Computed example of a mutant assay.
Amino acid sequence: MTRLKRWARELGVLALLIFAVMSGVDFLRAPQAPADFGHQPLQVVDSQNVTLLEQSQQRPLLVYFWATWCGVCKMTTPDVAKLAEEGGNVLSVALRSGDEDKIRQYLAAKNIAMPVVNDPRGELSAQWDIGVTPTFVMIDKGNVVSTTTGWTSYWGMKARLWWAGF
């Protein structure tokens, strides 16, 4: 039994260490929301203008910064699209991935349907100080609640959206 306790304790310490490192990396990579970001009109491809404030008023919003050329994004984008298809409050921003036709073609080829704001020259990502793709920003009622970068699972996204509502 003492051997089992030792393994459990070491596993707990390892989990805490991993959590601390991941939190530190997220802190260092965290984007900085521009002043009054909630009111800035954003043009969704094939749709109307929206603002992050109105999109996050009723329930938390996941803003997903990604790129067609990003290797990790190729793993996370289908999960974000699945979340959007299930009714999750999602808005994605395609960084330096070409014009709107190229974005449409990419999404159609991958059979992905989600709202996308195109940022062809990286101006929006520069305003947010996005240095890593993918970046996930949780917004509730116009306030940034949390951010994370790099790979995250479908369930991790769902949990972050759920937690952002508290």
Rank of each mutant, 00 (worst) to 15 (best):
Lys5Gln: 14
Glu86Asn: 02
Glu86Thr: 02
Asn49Ser: 15
Arg59Gly: 09
Val45Tyr: 01
Gln58Tyr: 04
Met22Ala: 15
Leu28Gln: 08
Gln57Pro: 14
Val45Asn: 02
Cys73Gly: 05
Val21Asp: 11
Val63Glu: 05
Lys74Ser: 12
Ala84Asn: 00
Pro34Ile: 03
Gln57Met: 10
Arg29Ile: 09
Thr76Ile: 01
Leu42Asp: 10
Gly12Asp: 11
Gln55Ala: 13
Lys74Asn: 10
Val44Asp: 05
Met22Arg: 15
Cys73Ile: 04
Val45Ala: 02
Gln57Cys: 10
Val80Pro: 07
Glu86Arg: 03
Cys73Arg: 00
Pro60Ala: 09
Leu16Asn: 12
Val21Glu: 09
Val50Arg: 03
Leu28Pro: 09
Ala15Ile: 12
Gly24Val: 07
Asp26Ile: 01
Leu61Phe: 03
Thr68Pro: 09
Gln40Asp: 11
Ala35Ile: 11
Met22Trp: 13
Glu10Tyr: 13
Trp66Ser: 10
Leu42Lys: 05
Gln43Cys: 10
Ala33Gly: 08
Asn49Arg: 15
Arg29Tyr: 08
Pro78Gly: 01
Phe27Ser: 12
Gln43Phe: 05
Glu10Arg: 15
Leu4Ile: 14
Pro31Arg: 03
Asp26Ala: 10
Asp36Ala: 12
Asp36His: 08
Asp46Gly: 08
Ala8Glu: 08
Leu52Tyr: 03
Ala8Met: 07
Val72Trp: 00
Gln55Asp: 11
Leu28Asp: 06
Trp66Met: 10
Glu54Phe: 04
Gly71Tyr: 02
Ser56Ile: 01
Pro60Asp: 09
Arg6His: 11
Ala67Tyr: 03
Pro41Tyr: 05
Val72Glu: 04
Gln48Ile: 08
Ala33Asp: 05
Gln43Gly: 10
Tyr64Gln: 07
Lys5Gly: 14
Phe19Leu: 15
Asp26Arg: 06
Ala15Cys: 13
Lys74Phe: 02
Leu53Gly: 13
Ala67Cys: 09
Val50Trp: 00
Arg29Ala: 11
Ala20Pro: 13
Thr51Gly: 03
Pro41Ala: 10
Pro34Cys: 07
Val13Thr: 11
Ala20Arg: 10
Ala81Ile: 04
Gln40Cys: 07
Lys82Gly: 05
Gln32His: 06
Pro78Cys: 01
Met22Asp: 15
Glu54Asn: 12
Leu4Thr: 14
Val72Asn: 03
Val13Phe: 09
Trp69Lys: 07
Trp66Ala: 06
Phe27Thr: 12
Phe37Met: 05
Met75Val: 10
Phe27Met: 11
Phe19Thr: 14
Lys74Ile: 05
Ala67Arg: 06
Leu83Thr: 03
Met22Thr: 15
Glu10His: 14
Ala81Gln: 04
Arg9Gln: 12
